[in-house]
Amino acid sequence: MQLTYSTFDSRPSERRRAWQRAIADIYFPLELAFPGTRVFEGTLDAWTLGPVSISRNCSNGVLYRRHEQHLLEEQDENYLVTVPELAEVRFVQDGRDVSCSPGGFLIERSHLPYEFSHRDPASLWVLKVPNAVLEARIRRPERLATLRFDARSGAGALFVDMLRLAVARISEFDAASRHLIGNQLVELLAAAVAADERLLMGSSTSVRNAHLCRAEAVIRSRLADPQLSPQSVADACGISLRYLQQIFEAENTTVGGQIRAQRLALCDERLRDPRFRGSISEIAYECGFSDQAQFSRNYRARFGCTPRQTRAEAQRGC
């Protein structure tokens, strides 16, 4: 589905208000300030690809503010991955101030106040990713906020290229294919940021972080195995169970909790994916749950609804 907004559809005196409504519809509520006195011009196009959306935002200079009051009624956290094509942008959140020029991208978190601005006319690509989708691939994705990443080479460049190409060819794909492409974009994003040393900074030593990354990779690769346990993860990493537990405790979680969280995230992704036609019990089994009742309880506790409700909602959206 594509949504298109243009200020040229509004009278000059109404354009700023119309732009604010369009921004709220595509992203979330924000306060806008418009520098200068010139008549505002902007176009905003958005496309849905399964769990994520892509937008192209072209406008004169704007200052966007996300305030505490905007967060009061917001339940679902999202991340905006912003790729400037034209002009430098500035982002301020949680006491950090970062600028990003064409050739890079930065990440904004919806559940904290922030300011985002560009003084000159700008063209931006924006990928909106729900927290649950990103969290299934990147541990503690809140660490990404305010970081600027290189998009000139490697996985970062491939991520941006695919972002543009997905929109250019989106009319050729059905709902199932768009869902697949959306997930592949998130996989590329994860690949682009995962190797960044800034994500490994914390209380753990580099050796502990290396073991942590290895353990998380083992968990992701073996989610379908109902026998996956903290001991088997420790064995695969060549470390003791107690040492593995200490590593995860330093991250305020447990090995078993991480296994369960990754399985639930994978189940949720498949329940929302129109390509997966299997039953709910088959999805649970394929993700390593051997007890469907236990799976349903854990799923409802994590997502606030039953697997059947999620499946029904996904089918209505097709």
Rank of each mutant, 00 (worst) to 15 (best):
D225M: 03
H211C: 14
A224V: 00
Q227A: 15
A210H: 11
E216R: 09
I219A: 02
I219M: 12
V207D: 10
R208W: 06
P226K: 00
V218N: 06
Q227K: 04
R220T: 10
Q227L: 13
L212M: 08
M201F: 05
L200D: 07
R214P: 04
A210F: 14
S203L: 03
L200N: 10
Q227P: 06
M201R: 15
V218Y: 06
L200F: 06
L199E: 01
N209R: 11
T205F: 07
I219L: 04
H211I: 10
S204N: 15
L199N: 01
A224F: 07
E216V: 02
A224M: 01
L200I: 02
R222T: 08
T205L: 12
A210R: 11
N209M: 12
S206F: 02
H211P: 10
S206D: 03
R208P: 02
M201V: 13
S203V: 08
R208C: 06
R222Y: 01
D225T: 08
V218G: 08
V207M: 15
R214M: 08
L199H: 00
S203Y: 00
G202R: 09
R208T: 09
S221H: 09
D225W: 04
R214F: 14
I219K: 02
S221A: 11
S206T: 03
A215Q: 03
T205I: 10
A217T: 14
V207L: 10
A224K: 11
R208I: 05
N209H: 10
T205N: 15
E216I: 03
L228W: 07
G202V: 03
R222A: 09
L199F: 07
A210M: 10
I219E: 05
I219T: 06
D225V: 11
L223W: 13
H211W: 14
V218L: 15
V218C: 09
S221D: 10
L228V: 11
A210Q: 08
R220M: 10
S203K: 04
P226C: 04
R222P: 10
S221F: 02
P226D: 06
C213L: 13
M201T: 11
V207Y: 08
L200R: 11
V218M: 05
L200G: 15
E216Q: 11
